[in-house]
């Protein structure tokens, strides 16, 4: 369980970091957008991804399983 949490958190941290960079790229240097707000938004984004990384991973796995099952079911129903 703790290993799973660790993996989820690590994945969250990486994704969050990338998300933060994309926020910086889109906003920093643009007229009208306060850099402080951008940095604060980026840091929070990274923090939230890291905090909820394991939950997001769980939902992703659940979604992948159900999505796969529903595709299979639909294919079976569509088959003559």
């Amino acid at each position: 369980m703790s290993t799973y949490l660790l993996i989820g958190t690590a994945i969250g941290a990486v994704l969050g970091f990338l998300h933060m960079l994309s926020i910086f790229r889109a906003r920093l240097g643009r007229p009208g957008l306060a850099p402080i707000k951008t940095v604060w938004q980026g840091i929070w984004t990274w923090f939230l991804w890291t905090l909820f990384g394991a939950y997001v991973l769980t939902f992703w796995i659940l979604g992948a399983v159900f999505l796969g099952a529903s595709k299979l079911l639909n294919r079976r129903q569509a088959a003559p």
Partner: peptide
């Protein structure tokens, strides 16, 4: 769309799919 949204709807697609179900 932003690169993040595009990623969410490709590799991350099970997440929005599950959300709407």
């Amino acid at each position: 769309s932003t690169p993040v949204t595009r990623a969410l709807h490709t590799v991350g697609y099970p997440l929005p799919w599950l959300f709407w179900r």
